[in-house]
């Protein structure tokens, strides 16, 4: 463990803890943004430039903004007077422990793990682009289709709302 890794990891973990425990939702969202940025720094620390930059572009630039927009549009930014923990927190902990166990088991038993001696593949931007367009073209297209469907759905929902609102306006 090198010094940069320790620094980045501690900042990321602290921000993640803050995102869970702060009272003000907008503060939580901002702490989550710091977590995303910390993850990006970890990727960059591992020399994965594309993943790191894409993480910043997508998570800091888009997802974080989406989250704060959602918070602002659905409720006021004032601090709510309720407990940090939801009433059913025991179930939450049980489920997250279950998920963690499953993930850990999958990682420990995967075929990729036992041979760490293999040379790291050249994950340059060019290679990633070529793989996305050749070897992994099907997953890419499926994801694209899914996103398009989601977008069309969003547009349709917005359209219907507008129509009913306009009808309601009429006397």
């Amino acid at each position: 463990m090198s010094l940069p890794f320790i620094l980045i990891a501690s900042v990321t973990l602290l921000a993640a803890a803050a995102a869970m425990s702060l009272r003000n939702l907008v503060h939580c969202a901002l702490a989550l943004t710091v977590t995303f940025a910390g993850l990006a720094a970890l990727y960059l620390n591992l020399d994965a430039q594309f993943a790191g930059f894409a993480q910043i572009l997508v998570y800091v630039g888009a997802v974080a903004i989406l989250i704060v927009f959602a918070i602002l549009l659905t409720r006021s930014g004032d601090t709510p007077n309720q407990a940090i923990l939801a009433p059913g927190w025991i179930y939450g902990i049980a489920i997250s422990a279950l998920v963690f166990t499953a993930l850990g088991w999958a990682v420990l038993n995967s075929s990729a793990l036992p041979k760490p001696a293999a040379p790291a593949p050249e994950a340059t931007v060019k290679n990633i682009g070529e793989w996305l367009m050749s070897k992994y073209v099907l997953p890419l297209e499926v994801i694209g289709l899914l996103l398009t469907a989601a977008m069309i759905g969003a547009v349709i929902i917005a359209l219907r709302e507008m129509k009913t609102k306009m009808e309601g306006d009429r006397p």
Binding site: L30, T33, A37, A40, Q49, F50, F53, A54, I56, L57, V60, G61, A62, A64, I65, V68, T124, V125, K126
Partner: peptide, 20 residues
Amino acid sequence: YDAGLLFFFAVGGAVEVSVF
């Protein structure tokens, strides 16, 4: 950087957070 253009757009996205 190899991904210089991506870097530029990525850090540009962080400006929105500060505006918010």
